[in-house]
Design a protein around this nucleic acid. Structure first.
Length: 160
DNA sequence: GCCAACGTTGGC
DNA sequence: GCCAACGTTGGC
């Protein structure tokens, strides 16, 4: 991926873990985005994300999956501490502190929006190429085209 | 709770 | 290094 272009991301979270409200109530509305256990998603964080990138804050595994907030990448790529914590559900016994396998970074929530559900997103032909809407998509982090980002920002504005 | 899709693992 | 079996994701 081109490292210079402005970029946008969709990041999935389960509301039980890090709901948008949880993020907004954290200090500086910033949370460490841990628990990524997929190499492709990790590589996006490691290689392509830059501070300031826009984030669509997605809730999955809930009654109405969809976009629940707007956020930004706030930085500080570092080893995901949960991989070394046997108490964590994200514990990875094969990862060693001297060679951490998983990474995390900070995401700052900017605002909560009226949820734009999967069903709502599917109504727009302009968005049908979005990765998150493709059948079988399971990646927790996906790049978002600028055109898609703009379209969604317009939807948010129209919410008033 | 079902199940399609897809990533990971491990025997060979 | 192939590929079948298995595990996980996540919308429905």
């Amino acid at each position: 991926m081109n490292a210079a272009s402005p970029r946008y991301w969709l990041m999935k979270n389960e509301p039980d873990d890090y709901a948008i409200d949880h993020a907004l109530s954290a200090p500086d509305a910033t949370i460490a985005w841990d628990g990524v256990r997929n190499y492709q998603a990790r590589n996006f964080m490691r290689d392509d994300m830059q501070v300031g990138d826009g984030v669509l804050y997605w809730h999955s595994s809930c009654a109405e999956p969809g976009i629940y907030g707007i956020a930004r990448i706030a930085g500080q790529l570092r080893p995901d501490t949960s991989q070394f914590d046997p108490q964590s559900k994200y514990y990875d016994p094969k990862s060693k502190p001297e060679a951490p396998r998983w990474l995390m970074l900070d995401v700052q929530a900017l605002r909560k929006i009226r949820p734009i559900t999967v069903a709502a997103l599917r109504q727009y032909p302009e968005l049908q190429e979005m990765r998150v809407l493709q059948k079988g998509n399971r990646l927790s982090i996906t790049p978002v085209d600028e055109a898609h980002w703009r379209f969604i920002m317009d939807l948010v504005k129209a919410q008033g």
